[in-house]
């Protein structure tokens, strides 16, 4: 009889060590330090705060989030308390217990820099890693907020290059750039981000936007009428995007989009992701989805004689 296999689920993204590859992506639950602590205690390898802008935003009116049979639509509209309040909320960031990614948003390059300034030491590379964010993420890809993301033209190669370069010069922490799946050639955009100084690509943001109409009310349900689509419907598109990006760039990829099981996570890693985001699946599986997914990954790896994640990252390319 063979001795039981040792499965190593530890992951590495830009030198940041994760006990497992699951990450809470931006926009899910990341409003306070205490709820992020809970997500970390529920098994997430890393967590991302809800995106923060230079000033407070109320976001869109409700309904802002809508579940449907193949996933979720959201048009939250980047509600956030602004960087001053966020810097205060996350001041004792080490209590969260896992690496924390700062998602920051801006209307133009200078606006991103204001947020970095506002976070002060929390984004300073010279600080001890337990008393600051581990990385910074810039989503240039939100499909439902005027002034930001795709609605502000931030997903063009020119704007991507300009914003990534500006943030790169300002902040020494690992820089993740989150891309939209709604572009003609995502690998080209990933190359632009890499050339401008990105350390990793987060792929992908929500797709669409989509619309759901309540036929009895004869009205679109979301108050903003349209919203980004996530969940199961997004998964094959996200997997294809990650597959394309993996071929095009050297930097690592955080694969996000519709992952709800260990098999889904392994699929995304075989497409080329080093780590995976899990968001919409919290609806079906609860916050414990992180532990569930890592346990399922571990089981699959055991059954298939795979000892570490390096053996599966990009495996579908061979």
């Amino acid at each position: 009889m063979k001795p039981p296999m040792t499965i190593n689920l530890s992951a590495d993204i830009c030198g940041i060590k994760l006990v497992n590859p699951t990450i809470l992506p931006a926009g899910f639950l990341g409003t306070t330090k205490e709820i992020l602590k809970r997500v970390a205690n529920s098994g997430a390898g890393a967590v991302t705060i809800k995106s923060i802008s230079s000033v407070a935003r109320d976001g869109h009116k409700n309904p802002t989030v809508l579940m449907y049979e193949a996933g979720m639509l959201n048009a939250v509209g980047y509600s956030n308390p602004g960087v001053k309040a966020a810097a205060n909320e996350f001041s004792n960031i080490g209590e969260i217990g896992v690496p924390v990614i700062a998602s920051i948003i801006g209307t133009e390059a200078d606006d991103f820099l204001k947020v970095i300034d506002g976070f002060g030491d929390l984004l300073s590379k010279s600080k001890d890693s337990s008393s600051r964010f581990s990385a910074i993420e810039i989503p240039l890809s939100c499909p439902h907020t005027p002034g930001f993301g795709t609605l502000a033209g931030q997903s063009t190669p020119e704007a991507t290059s300009e914003i990534v370069s500006a943030v790169r010069k300002k902040c020494g922490l690992p820089l993740f750039v989150k891309l939209s799946p709604n572009v003609p050639d995502i690998s080209k955009l990933a190359m632009v981000a890499q050339d401008a100084g990105a350390d990793a690509i987060t792929a992908v943001n929500t797709m669409g936007p989509g619309m759901v109409i309540n036929i009895d009310a004869r009205e679109p349900v979301l108050d903003f009428k349209v919203g980004g689509v996530s969940g199961a419907a997004l998964r094959p598109i996200a997997v294809r995007c990650v597959f394309d990006i993996y071929k095009a760039v050297e930097i690592p990829i955080i694969g996000v989009g519709g992952i709800s099981s260990g098999r889904d996570a392994i699929e995304m890693m075989m497409a080329g992701a080093s780590t995976v985001g899990i968001g919409t699946a919290i609806y079906d599986r609860g916050i414990d989805v992180f532990k569930g997914v890592t346990d399922e990954m571990s089981d699959w790896m055991t059954n298939n004689g795979v000892g570490s994640l390096n053996e599966i990252i990009g495996a579908a390319h061979k």
């Binding site: 639950l29 409003t31 306070t32 205490e34 709820i35 602590k37 989030v65 939250v76 509600s79 919409t280």
Partner: peptide
Amino acid sequence: KCGVGVCGQCVCDG
């Protein structure tokens, strides 16, 4: 906002 546990708007501690 969402009412179903994903958005983080109504959190009290954890």
